[in-house]
Design a protein around this nucleic acid. Structure first.
Ligand code: ZN
Ligand code: ZN
Ligand code: ZN
Ligand code: ZN
Lengths: 142, 142
DNA sequence: TCTAACCTTTAAGTTAGGTTTATGGTACGC
DNA sequence: GCGTACCATAAACCTAACTTAAAGGTTAGA
């Protein structure tokens, strides 16, 4: 189909960028892409630039931007918008650092718990702890 | 209300454990808690054990368990289930480590991008890169 | 010409962990 | 007896990024 125009159907595009056709329709609904034209039968037809745009989108996602951020980036002019890009990246960095702190704390808490769980001989010390230090603590003596 | 039975209404419990009443109803729907009884008018009435159970739930969440995991933990007997607890914790650790790896990679990618963005003098190098190295690269020469 | 593999649309479902809204009954102090 | 604060239910809504379903039209190949 459309061999001579160089245009591709949604499925062909989907295959090229390794994304589901439904995702492409979703991106269109969200205003991230737009087919060059429609065939007589209503099929979406994309040109090669759509591939680049989609790779841009996926690259943006890969480095952690939300689709909304990417939509903003797509509207930017390379010449005029470094400030905006920097602000976006800085925001993402702050979020990421916060997540890292939380995850690391979480990791060490869980790791401690695992250690206690492994050492506990009569009854699970972790469950016991969670169920409240405030109780009978039969796990400690007899 | 219920002063002599030692039972508390949902709002009192909510206040004690610092959680919204709607959350408690949600937990009940999800099978995580159950009121001791209902008042004649249909009000949920909880005893003090509910407070402990809720603190268990929040403690579990705080160390990164999903409500489903916590539900499983609640059904466990302290005496018989260390293996299960260990498996749960180990799974969580694997997930957390994977997330940490991703986040760290992401962080350094974004940080590099930020550096390039700051250094780029004519046009945003980051947007240019995302828009495809494969192109005219007018950002490099002239 | 048949059939499989495309494509179209609108609408609803998925994930987690709740919150909000609408509508109406209850409890308590004054 | 009233006002205010509390409680009940069912259902819808929230975020993010999609996926799936239902119902049907199109195209390519043998
Ligand atoms: Zn254990
Ligand atoms: Zn820049
Ligand atoms: Zn849910
Ligand atoms: Zn059909």
């Amino acid at each position: 189909m459309a061999k001579h125009t160089g245009l591709m159907t949604i499925g062909q595009v989907a295959q090229q960028v390794e994304v589901a056709s439904s995702t492409l329709r979703f991106y269109e609904r969200e205003g991230l892409i737009r087919p060059t034209k429609r065939s007589k039968a209503g099929y979406r037809l994309f040109d090669r630039e759509a591939l680049e745009q989609l790779r841009f989108i996926r690259a943006g996602q890969a480095i952690g931007f939300a689709l909304n951020d990417i939509k903003a980036l797509l509207l930017l002019d390379e010449e005029t918008s470094c400030k905006r890009v920097q602000r976006l990246i800085e925001q993402r960095l702050v979020e990421i650092d916060a997540k890292l702190v939380n995850l690391k704390r979480l990791r060490s808490t869980l790791n401690d718990a695992l250690g206690r769980c492994r050492k506990s001989k009569r009854g699970c010390a972790v469950v016991a702890d969670l169920k409240g230090m405030s109780k009978k603590r039969k796990t400690l003596y007899s």
